[in-house]
Design a protein around this nucleic acid. Sequence first.
DNA 1: AATTATTACTTAAACGTTTCAGTTACTAAA
DNA 2: TTTAGTAACTGAAACGTTTAAGTAATAATT
Lengths: 345, 345
Amino acid sequence: MKRVSIKDVAKKAGVSASTVSYVLNRTPTETISPETTKRVIDAVEKLGYVPNLNARSLASKYSNLIGVLIPQTEPGKEFMFSNPFYGELLSAIEYTARQNGYHLLLSGTQEDQSYMGIAQNRDLDGIIIVGTYPGENLYQLKRLGVPIVLVDSYVKDKDFYTVGIDDRKGAKLATDYLIKKGHKKIAFISGSIRENGVNIRRWEGYCDAMKEAGLSINEDAIYSGNVDYNYGLIAAKQYIDRGKNQTAAFITADVISIGVLKGLIQHGVNVPEDFSIVSFDDVYLARMSYPSLTTVSQDIAGKGKRAVQLILDATGNKEKSYTDCVLPLCLVERDSVIEFRCEQC
Amino acid sequence: MKRVSIKDVAKKAGVSASTVSYVLNRTPTETISPETTKRVIDAVEKLGYVPNLNARSLASKYSNLIGVLIPQTEPGKEFMFSNPFYGELLSAIEYTARQNGYHLLLSGTQEDQSYMGIAQNRDLDGIIIVGTYPGENLYQLKRLGVPIVLVDSYVKDKDFYTVGIDDRKGAKLATDYLIKKGHKKIAFISGSIRENGVNIRRWEGYCDAMKEAGLSINEDAIYSGNVDYNYGLIAAKQYIDRGKNQTAAFITADVISIGVLKGLIQHGVNVPEDFSIVSFDDVYLARMSYPSLTTVSQDIAGKGKRAVQLILDATGNKEKSYTDCVLPLCLVERDSVIEFRCEQC
DNA sequence: AATTATTACTTAAACGTTTCAGTTACTAAA
DNA sequence: TTTAGTAACTGAAACGTTTAAGTAATAATT
């Protein structure tokens, strides 16, 4: 199928290719007469001409394309699958981008894979990296010379923008809440704790709260595995096996909480009557479960929106105002926590 | 930041640009000596050269890029948000594409929006459209002259590939199951029924089963709204208000079922003791809820994989073997259905 | 009446590749 | 000794745009 190019339009309208380009891009400095404009528009319509955006970026250096990298090793393991957080974030990124005339070049990432192979040189206007795997790979990306936004990363480097939340503070908020409700033996259940990741901060926040309240942190109160539903099931089993030594848990991701919830019910432990849960993220799942989850709500849509805006600002070469963007968070009370009353008191 | 182009590499290696191109693309017809190859590779490494894929597609007509269009009006309304199905599907598409060296150009779509503005001419190797909005927009896409795969659409047109399931059969499977379990008054709860959509087929399947069993379909057993969690809550409320006239429901999407589940519990109706549910999709949510959902399982990952493969096959100009791909489905029994015993019998 | 501006275009280079069609220097066959 | 064949390259056009610079015609200013 022969494609319609700008030259075909030009010929049909009886003008030069550049005139067509000027008409289509309504360049403010250039003046085209109304009659010519009409002839060009007509020709475009008649021929069904659609500009080739590849050629456009090649010539103009801007592509209206934002690269988005999200961890996904294999389907069913991560990404939207195990944690809806990524899906919600991507959704927000896509929407914001589209509202501004941008589209997304999406790619999953694996830990051992070069970012370069992925976010290859396509004249991207910017790159958003979610759940960063730090390392050489990351720094190679700088070569592309485009603005890079790291979402939920504690990699500090003046060449990267970041958007995130105060994970430590959020975790403290959650743990404080349980303590305020009378709980003293509080489990910490999280995904794998990796350098520069969010879980290590959430662990610190948990510790902060416990220490401040003069509570001890027992070895058997700590659970760590994957950030997915299955690990929640496993953690619940472990809790039973270890002897049900806690009355509550701070869980670092809603999706794990859902698994814990299910696991506990299967073993006859009721939430919140027998066990209280505060978790983190406030994905839509948190509302849907029974009981619904009391959780630290981070503005996921806000995160996505900010990430895109940082790129748009950088592209419109406004001066780089804030490199690190920290969004607010709050605790939303739902039905997974009950006041603890000590029988002995 | 000055970019490194193929000419810079050529100069450094003391060869022509075309030689560099040949080395990098290891064209089988062209012979390059080992020494030259090494010099070029070294230069590439030293300069950190990354080929510009835009220029490559412009010159070569293949982009290793697949466009993916998924409905999303605004964040929180659809897409990953209200129905995890889209997220899981996208996940599978992305994975399959990446395994084959392709990346995704992702865009949300709105009903009133031109597809053209979205999937613009970027030398895409193919386009996957999910949850098709039929109409003029759709046919305009043909102009791009690339293979188009419609997922879950009943638009029949020899220019489009399709991948889907037999929705009517699936719905019959679900309803049959409830009937086999002794239910006679079975509600039908679904999202909006639109032309060429899947819900109309699922309605037909429900009717097939009811008729075959000689059961009547009462007006008040039919519920229709949005495909989202909130509508599930609403439907549950309506069920109560209308007088709890059914003992079971076939619900056309898991995400609605989750809402119904929650809504019923809030009104003291227990599932499955007081009310049985069979739903459709088998997204990961179906496993996570309490009780977990008995549901018609469609191979979501398979759908995504097939969609990508159809494009790859079409690109490698194998003859267009099958235009319409219908994937198998099955019913998975979980915990949301109980045998119904009539008290009067 | 001569100069300067303005309007409405056109020309041509540039963007970074691929790839067809040479070209040169050897080697093998006639 | 000519011819044909092969190995290892190079040159240049082509892909479809954008955009700086140029041009011709008309209008406004002196």
